[in-house]
Simulated scan of single mutants.
Amino acid sequence: MGIGGVVMMLVFWALLVAGIVVLVGWLRRKDFPGQRETPLDILKKRYAQGEIGKDEFDRMKKDLES
């Protein structure tokens, strides 16, 4: 293997490692559904979508905080 082969092998491995780093970074930033939602977040979303009323929201929020 000559110097050209060594350089190509180094380039290949550098690109492979860089690709893995980029992929891991992308996966860490990606927000998977339900992954980071707290019960309070879900409650707020239900209230915002009109699934529950203000009285029910306040009661459920109080239950979660206690």
Rank of each mutant, 00 (worst) to 15 (best):
G50W: 00
P33S: 11
W26T: 07
A48K: 06
T38D: 08
L64K: 02
L43G: 01
V21E: 15
D58T: 01
W13G: 06
G53V: 03
D41Y: 09
A48H: 12
S66T: 09
L43Q: 07
K45D: 07
V21I: 15
I42S: 08
V24Y: 14
A14R: 11
E51N: 07
F12K: 05
Q35T: 04
M8G: 07
D41W: 00
G4T: 11
W26I: 12
M1R: 14
K62S: 03
V21Q: 15
I42K: 06
F57N: 02
G50M: 04
E37F: 11
D31G: 11
F32G: 04
L23N: 12
M9S: 06
G25I: 13
K45V: 03
L23C: 15
I3G: 04
P39G: 05
M60I: 07
M9N: 09
Q35W: 06
F12I: 06
R28T: 12
G25W: 11
V17L: 15
I3T: 09
V21P: 06
Y47E: 00
G53Q: 06
E65C: 01
G50H: 11
W26K: 13
G25D: 15
G2T: 04
V6H: 08
L43R: 03
R59Q: 05
D55V: 07
G50T: 01
